[in-house]
Each structure stands twice: as C-alpha cells, then as structure tokens.
Amino acid sequence: MNSDDRELREHFAALRREEEARAPEFSALAAPGRSQGRPLWSGRVVAASVCVAAITAAGLWLETALHRPHAEPATPVASIAGWKPPTDFLLETPGRELLQTVPVIGALPEYAKAAAPHHKGVQVKKTVLP
C-alpha cells in the first residue's frame, strides 16, 4: 500500500468512526415487532388485496351485465323513411305547384282552373284590337 492509499484509508476510517457512532441499535432494527418502518410483506399484501378486489368487482359487473334482460324500448323507433322533420312546412312555399307541373298548350293548369270562372260552353269572342 502506498502513501496515497494510506491517506484515502484514513479518510474512510474517519467517516466510519462517525457513522458507527450514530448507527442505530441492532435490537431496534432486528426486533420482529418493530413498528417503525414497513415490513417486507405489507406492500405485497396491499397489492394482492387490490388485485383481488379489482377482479371481484370486474366479475360481478360482468355477471350482472350478461344476465340483465334486454328491456324493450318504451316507444317504437320511427323509420327514417317515415320521419318528417318539424320544419318541413317551411318548404311549402306559395306558387310551388307552378314549379312542379309541366304546362300543356291549350289546357289550363289545375291552379288556374280553380281561379277561373265557370263559363261552360260559352265562347269568348276575341276582338282584334285596332
């Protein structure tokens, strides 16, 4: 061992003396019923309990979900084909019939018939304007 090693060894020896003076009692750490600190198994017991509780809860939930009778809906769901939106009336604009029918030459359209006076068989004489 060289002098440098001896010097390092002395530093460590001084540290050891200090730490040994402050070391806790052996009986305080090795006693089986030591309340301070946590025993090794406590964490495992807690983890195992949490796992068991989680598995039980999941099992119970699955059990109830699988055996629950399927409830019929209170009101039958309307088909999309028969459904009418509540704002449908807004599409009924005046004069819509005019756009929906194809005019025929010589025939009055339905809407015009309703508005015209009934002169059955009376010929209206056309006059030629000067």
Partner: peptide, 22 residues
Amino acid sequence: SFGWALLCCNHRREEAEEVLQI
C-alpha cells in the same frame, strides 16, 4: 452493515435503516 447500507442508499439514513431491517 449499517455503513454499507448507508452507501447503498446514497447516505440517506432512513432508507438505510429500512434496508437493513428488511
């Protein structure tokens, strides 16, 4: 053993005591 436990726990006394107890 306590000195060694201290080194293994970066000189944190409480941790060293716990490690030594375990």
